[in-house]
Design a protein around this nucleic acid. Structure first.
Length: 453
DNA sequence: ATATGGTACCTCTGCGTGTT
DNA sequence: AACACGCAGAGGTACCATAT
């Protein structure tokens, strides 16, 4: 082998190539950007065969378009391309290695990967082998060197040195350790291989490496249980095994039942929690409705009191104007709205009014306003103590003028019939509901705004 | 017929990713 | 974080196609 020390200089700092790789495996080698040339074949000045005739190939145009191979059966080789360098062509393995082989051996000895060798060769314009050829050529060169050296040793033209003897013993020791490790690795795989072999022979086999190991040792040590088909008491063994199988099945079912019970329990708990939550919600809704009802009632009462005051005022005004006159005993209704006193019973339906009049022993025929007037006149004829007693009875205040007492009683009667009450309550509720809905919408919008951040 | 470059196939290793 | 798993890249070897 020729001197290769110059490669150390060439590839030291100035020629950046990748660091030698330590382990095999997936690595990301940097891509080499080189011109693509067609594979060609020509002889150089020494008669050696090279691709591209050793011409420097800096561009894709700078080559002679010649086929390196004769017309092949598949024609594939004629069109193969290499990046940079010369195309590979058969070249004898020579122990007096040329520069390419010397570099190849040096790089491989240094630990560069096959791909790195190919890239470096391409970049330097050397022969560009296929990556998969590198190891092949490398091992062939080494064998050739060894063969040549064997012959020299035979002829006693070279000899072992003391230093080499020492290295030999070290190498022997090292290799022995490697062999031991390799042996251990393969031995450790023994029962894995046994299990695989079992599967090949018995496709239904499900014995693991561990099972094979345990059984094998049991058989060798005589501790393995006897198979039922060769046992002295097969019936007993079978019965015992069946009992174990049954017990295991029972255990399995028990566990399944426990599991199912646990799931059921959890579901029941969840259902209870859900129901409780729903009940709480319903109660809350009920409370809310109750509150709204009360508020409405309060508002209505307040309005009623205000109306009662207004009613009293109107009556007073009319009384002053009609001084000395008796209130009409029958159906005389003022046609002028200004003169007419608003009685709460006017909100009642004609049907309810007829019912009320009948109940109080008053003529219930005629127009709506006539009935309202008759009711008023009837009330007006009562004494103040009687009116107060009536107010007390219906849970209304007993203070104020007679007209206010009259109004309260009229209002109570009107509200005791469903229609006007429902009408007013609904009106008040819908107002409260609207307010609530608006509040809900604002909350909803705010929630989404916060979520979007 | 032999030597050589290249291919097919196998194994090993490292990396990325999903699961526990 | 630890582990399992699949994928892809790398090297080794037997073999094939072809040049000599």
């Amino acid at each position: 082998m020729s001197d290769f020390l110059h490669f150390y200089d060439e590839y030291d700092d100035e020629r950046p190539i990748a660091e030698p790789v330590e382990n095999r495996g997936r690595r990301k080698n940097p891509a080499v950007d080189l011109p693509v040339i067609l594979r060609t074949r020509n002889d150089d000045e020494n008669g050696e065969v090279h691709g591209n005739n050793g011409v420097e190939t800096d561009s894709a145009i700078d080559f002679t378009f010649m086929s390196v191979y004769q017309e092949g059966a598949n024609g594939k080789r004629q069109l193969m391309r290499v990046q940079g360098g010369r195309a590979a062509a058969p070249k004898a393995i020579n122990t007096q290695a040329d520069d390419d082989d010397a570099m190849l051996v040096w790089m491989k000895n240094m630990g560069y990967s096959d791909k790195q060798v190919v890239d470096a060769f391409a970049r330097d314009g050397r022969t560009v082998y296929s990556t998969t050829s590198i190891t092949g050529r490398y091992t062939r060169v080494l064998r050739a060197q060894e063969n040549e050296y064997d012959e020299l040793l035979e002829r006693e033209l070279v000899e072992w040195t003391a230093e080499d003897d020492e290295e030999l013993m070290k190498a022997y020791q090292k290799v022995n350790e490697e062999i031991y490790a390799a042996f251990k690795r393969i031995r450790d795989k023994r029962f894995r291989m046994v299990a695989t072999a079992m599967r090949k022979e018995v496709p239904t086999s499900k014995y693991s490496a561990k099972a094979c190991y345990d059984r094998y040792n049991g058989l060798v040590n005589g501790t393995a249980c006897i198979p039922v088909d060769v046992h002295d008491e097969p019936e007993r063994v079978k019965t015992e095994r069946d009992a174990r199988v049954a017990a295991a099945e029972n255990e399995r079912r028990k566990n399944l039942a426990l599991e199912a019970a646990a799931i059921k329990k959890q579901e029941a708990q969840e259902a209870t929690a859900k129901r409780l939550k729903e009940m709480r919600t319903v109660k809350a809704m009920d409370r809310k409705e109750e509150r709204l009802k009360k508020e409405t009632e309060m508002r209505l009462n307040k309005a009623a009191e205000a109306k009662a005051a207004m009613f009293a005022h109107h009556i007073k005004v009319r009384a002053a104007r009609d001084k000395g006159k008796q209130v009409a005993a029958d159906d005389e209704i003022g046609s002028d709205d200004d003169e007419r006193v608003i009685d709460p019973r006017e909100d009642m339906s004609v049907e309810d009014l007829r019912h009320l009049c009948k109940k109080k022993g008053i003529n219930n025929r005629g127009k709506k306003l006539q009935m309202v007037n008759r009711l008023y006149v009837s009330d007006e004829r009562m004494t103040i103590p009687a009116l107060k007693a009536r107010c007390r009875e219906i849970g209304r205040p007993t203070g104020g003028t007679k007209d206010m007492l009259l109004y309260r009683i009229a209002d109570h009667e009107a509200r005791s019939y469903s229609k006007p009450i429902e009408k007013r309550r609904k009106k008040a509720l819908s107002k409260a509901e609207k307010a609530q809905a608006q509040e809900d919408q604002e909350l909803h919008d705010m929630f989404h705004k916060i979520n979007a951040i």
